[in-house]
């Protein structure tokens, strides 16, 4: 198993290099003089020149790239012009908010997608199958931000069930002491159950918005993989051996359907990392997506560069995790690498 992880980590290195190159290129396509831009609006010719040297912008492209890599190695993602802080500090503060939102959405998408998919496979054209195709059709045609706004309009403005969609917690509550950065978990750890409930209420709409788009694809892939597995020879053997229905369904059926589902989950996660920006924007969620968009709008580019790096790195990590789980589930994969 460690061998599998080692191989996959090695295989991820060229990807990482490519990602750093692209992040580098994205900032180089900035129009105008980058040094003048980074020196800020009040810069003089002297400070611009000083900035140029400090950022290594006076060298060749290769030198600049190496300087950039050197910065990254030191954990320096540059400074944000608008907040005046190192980007890495702003990110560290806001990343938990983004992760809490995205991971809950991912969990709900996986659970919902699998349940709908298995239900649909047990009764093709049945009620569950119909529900799954409606959810999936909506997910494909409705833009993320529009769905978020509709949910806000219905559940906040009309029904008044949801709290005001402005961030992680209404200003009337005191946030929990940060331990994990996941406020729901921190609230539970500190025994503040009323706060936990409020946090869940606040999370509900953005999580549903984000999860919605993952449920459809996961349900669809689960359905077809389950149909294949349930009609397989080994499920017939399990039935002939008199095993329990539950055992046959999950241990013999689903276990053999899980690999395509896992791969779809990787795709869904990629989509969620992107859609996250839109959802944070709609719900005023104080994560790195909303932070980056704010930065872009005032022409503050260091956060953008950091943002695409961090997101791509997260994506690599999740794919790695998926590969490891795949190898755990399917012994045949272990020998492929």
């Amino acid at each position: 198993m460690t061998r599998v992880i080692g191989f996959r980590l090695l295989a991820a290195i060229p990807n990482l290099v490519g990602i750093i190159v692209i992040a580098f290129i994205v900032t180089r396509i900035l129009p105008g003089d980058a040094a003048a831009y980074y020196a800020g609006p009040t810069a003089t010719a002297a400070t611009i020149e000083e900035t140029r040297q400090r950022l290594g912008l006076d060298g060749t492209v290769v030198e600049q790239f190496l300087a950039y890599v050197g910065q990254l190695v030191r954990g320096d993602l540059g400074d944000s012009l608008s907040s005046g802080q190192p980007v890495i500090e702003d990110f560290a503060r806001r990343l938990p908010a983004s992760l809490e939102l995205t991971l809950y959405a991912l969990i709900i998408a996986i659970a919902g997608g699998i349940l709908l998919g298995v239900g649909a496979a047990l009764r093709p054209r049945g009620v569950v199958d119909r529900i799954a195709s409606v959810v999936s059709a909506v997910g494909q045609a409705v833009p993320t931000f529009f769905l978020g706004l509709i949910l806000i309009f219905v559940f906040y403005y009309i029904l008044n069930w949801a709290p005001e969609p402005l961030g992680r917690l209404s200003f009337m509550y005191r946030p929990p002491q940060p331990i994990s950065g996941f406020w729901t978990i921190d609230a539970l750890l500190q025994g503040r159950f009323d706060l936990f409930g409020e946090l869940v209420r606040q999370l509900a709409l953005p999580v549903i918005t984000l999860a919605w788009f993952g449920i459809g694809p996961i349900a669809r892939v689960t359905r077809s993989a389950m149909l294949d597995a349930l009609s397989s020879d080994f499920v017939r053997t399990a039935r002939a051996a008199g095993l329990r229905r539950r055992t046959i369904l999950w241990r013999y059926g689903f276990r053999n359907a899980v690999i395509p589902v896992l791969h779809t989950t990787g795709m869904v996660f990629s989509f969620m990392l992107g859609a996250n920006v839109l959802v944070e924007d709609v719900f005023g969620w104080p994560g790195i997506g909303a932070y980056t968009v704010d930065a872009v709008l005032v022409a503050d580019y260091a956060p953008v560069q950091a943002y695409i790096l961090v997101m791509a790195a997260l994506y690599i990590v999740v794919n790695l995790a998926i590969d490891v789980v795949t190898a755990l589930v399917d012994p045949r994969v272990r020998y492929d690498s």
Partner: peptide, 20 residues
């Protein structure tokens, strides 16, 4: 089934779950 009546099939490798 599985107790008083047992069953074996052809193509045994496909008739066993590959992930267990």
């Amino acid at each position: 089934r599985g107790r008083r009546i047992g069953m074996v099939f052809q193509n045994a490798r496909a008739a066993l779950s590959p992930t267990l």
